[in-house]
């Protein structure tokens, strides 16, 4: 799948932002009041909001984006839009009350936490529902998205032990996702023979492509560039997203400075991991083009 910068930024930044907002809502990071509450709420809302703005750049017709709020009964993308908006509608009053009136509203906080987690979950389900992309249609997709939000949120909130636990879960989820996804389409029993239905007659091989020029389907669904460096990039992503942040915030080190370094490192690692999430994903339509 084509690794679009807009979607990579959106999923990574919004994931961490909603993770932080969820923690603030539960009171896991205390219930800061007055100006002490400004930085965490601004960071959470800013990251989540920046991600949502980035996602609009992926649309062909962003001016019609409001229509995406209508089909929540069937569409995970629509559910994500509704839940993200609902999270903002609940978190913003709580943030305003915490900062301006120095009176946090735990009820709204908890509601915001549930909505923020549900938003991240629905983002993951957009990918996990895709039967056409075997690498995504797996429980590890949901696990990676939720663990990344927890890790990003706890690092941004400066919570040592929760951050270490979340980073551990993220490490397991990432490794499991890569391991499960490395079963290529061929070994899942799919090839040009099953895609064309001609496999019963003999060995099927693409002879000439349907077109010599480019096409949307090839560009979007049959992305091949960069898979060569996947192994090295996986190592880099794992070091940046999981290992280094965990080492930095482990006991015995400095306080807020360690988190101030660990959080951006983690987000950088997640950007690399999310790039791989798209670039390594094979769509079954590639079978018609001799790729899988």
């Amino acid at each position: 799948m084509h690794p679009a910068v807009s979607i990579i930024l959106f999923t990574v930044l919004s994931g961490a932002g909603f993770g932080l907002l969820a923690l603030l809502g539960t009171g896991a990071a205390g219930r800061p009041a007055g100006w002490a509450a400004f930085v965490p709420f601004a960071l959470g809302l800013g990251l989540a909001g920046a991600g949502l703005v980035a996602s609009a750049f992926h649309l062909g017709r962003p001016e019609r984006a409001l229509r995406a709020f209508t089909q929540w009964r069937t569409s995970w993308l629509s559910r994500e839009a509704v839940l993200a908006a609902a999270t903002f509608a609940v978190v913003v009053p709580n943030a305003a009350a915490s900062v301006l009136l120095a009176r946090p509203l735990p009820g709204l906080g908890w509601a915001g936490a549930v909505l923020a987690v549900a938003t991240v979950g629905s983002t993951a389900m957009i990918y996990a529902q895709m039967r056409t992309v075997p690498r995504w249609r797996h429980w590890t997709t949901l696990a990676v998205f939720l663990a990344a939000a927890a890790a990003g949120g706890t690092l941004l909130a400066g919570l040592r032990w929760p951050a270490l636990a979340a980073l551990g879960l993220l490490g397991i989820a990432l490794a499991a996702h890569w391991r499960a996804g490395d079963r290529p389409l061929g070994r899942a029993g799919q090839d040009a023979g099953t895609a064309t239905g001609l496999g019963a007659l003999g060995r099927v091989r693409p002879l000439s492509p349907a077109h010599t020029g480019g096409s949307y389907v090839l560009k979007e669904m049959v992305h091949v560039v960069g898979r060569r460096h996947a192994r090295r990039l996986r190592l880099l992503a794992f070091l940046l997203a999981v290992v280094l942040p965990a080492a930095l915030v482990a006991p015995g080190w400095g306080g807020w400075l360690a988190f101030a370094i660990a959080a951006p490192l983690h987000l950088g690692g997640m950007l690399a991991a999310r790039w791989l999430f798209f670039a390594e994903a094979e769509h079954v339509v590639g079978l018609y083009y001799g790729r899988g």
């Binding site: 992926h58 062909g60 017709r61 995406a68 096409s215 389907v217 979007e220």
Partner: peptide
């Protein structure tokens, strides 16, 4: 009504949908 998000093209196993490069709709 199409916002050109491309999700329907991802969901189609047959590559039957193409986002138009000029109209930016499916």
């Amino acid at each position: 009504a199409c916002i050109g998000c491309g999700l329907c093209a991802w969901a189609c196993p047959y590559g039957a949908r193409e986002l138009d490069g000029a109209e930016r709709v499916m």
